[in-house]
Simulated assay, not measured.
Amino acid sequence: MSTKSQVLTLLMKQAPAFISGEEMAQELSLSRTAIWKAINELKKEGHLITSSRNKGYSYDKSDVLSIEGIRLTLEPTAPDLSITVLNASESTMKDAKLAAINGEPNNTLIVADIQEAPKGRFGRPFFSKAGSGIYMSMLLRPNQNFEEMAQYTVIMAVAIARAMDTLVKVKTEIKWVNDIYINGKKVCGILSEAMSDVESGQISNVIIGMGINFSLKQNEFPKDLREKATSLFPENEPTITRNELIGAIWNQFYAILNRLPEQGFLEEYRQKSFVLGKTVSFTQAGVDYKGIATAINDHGELVVQLHDKTEKVLSSGEISLSKINPTV
């Protein structure tokens, strides 16, 4: 761990109490000069650190993304994550794919302050602004069959919804397959991709990525998105940090994984769905269909009853709902 990282971790643990430079030097076995240099570097990065001639230093809560800030929010039941925090990324999904190719370990998390070329499902672009969102991707190495792939995307949606509901006191809903909505507007999109081992027929890597609108003000969205998208804090100042939300999301994710094969999360997913019971339009194999969404099965697939009473089972990888209307 670098000197700067050691100093930041200690300051965060002590916050909001003050700690003197001498105490920090003794605890970390560093010189006072090294402490002073690290604190100045942290201040330049945007961390809010109060200096007092008599008391020492105190860390004030700030919304700078950091490995240290994320780690301090993780519960003991979560695995030891390998975390990278970037100032900017073309795409954290691409970064995670490269990490997989380079042999990075299971539970590798890549977080960026901004994505310069973000893409969602089917390559759709979405809006990104520095300091106002969370853009991250996780590399998992599950060695499971393709039939189990859908569990990860459903688990991720439930984990994000739980974290937002708990920390921000909002009421989230899930649009099949994995968009998180608040008050009828999209606040988060999730994308999952798998890489397979040809010989074993198993999934060797799963990458789960997401873009979360955290503190983007409603009038900052492009005009064509203002009626469709929102953020967790569209008007007021955030009551939590992005580090805290990131940690809470992965705490919830691993809490569900640790309880598998329990399927309670599926019922939670169904209860939060605002698609069930509504009329949906979609295209499958080049043919347009319209019907009522009647169920989400144990594989996370959407079951739609067409007007002729036949059923279509929609897979998240091949279908996008083009329209959702209340059932008349």
Rank of each mutant, 00 (worst) to 15 (best):
G131L: 08
G133H: 08
T166G: 07
E262K: 09
E104Q: 07
P125R: 05
V280E: 06
I67T: 08
L8C: 05
S5E: 09
I203F: 11
Y254E: 14
D288N: 15
K272V: 10
E173M: 06
I49W: 03
K97P: 00
S196W: 11
M12I: 04
Y57A: 13
E173Q: 11
R162A: 03
V304W: 02
A34V: 05
C188K: 09
A150L: 11
P142M: 15
K217V: 13
Y152C: 07
D224R: 06
S132G: 07
M149A: 14
L257K: 10
L65P: 02
E27P: 01
P105T: 11
E147A: 04
R141C: 08
L232P: 01
R71V: 12
S2R: 15
K171S: 11
A194R: 05
S192R: 09
E301G: 08
N106F: 00
K97I: 14
Q202P: 03
Y269V: 15
L65G: 07
K278D: 09
I101F: 00
L11K: 03
G277Q: 04
E23N: 14
Q305V: 15
V154C: 01
S128P: 03
T153Q: 12
P105S: 13
V313K: 10
I174M: 04
T241A: 02
K169T: 09
D288F: 14
H307G: 10
L167F: 00
I114M: 08
I35Y: 04
E227Q: 14
I324V: 15
I292H: 04
T241G: 04
S91P: 03
E41A: 14
T172Q: 02
L74D: 01
S137R: 13
I207E: 10
V187A: 11
K217R: 13
F265T: 06
L232V: 04
G247Y: 07
C188P: 03
I240N: 01
R226I: 15
Q115E: 13
V313H: 10
G264M: 01
A229W: 00
R162Q: 10
E90A: 07
D60K: 10
S52P: 02
S192F: 02
T33M: 07
S5T: 05
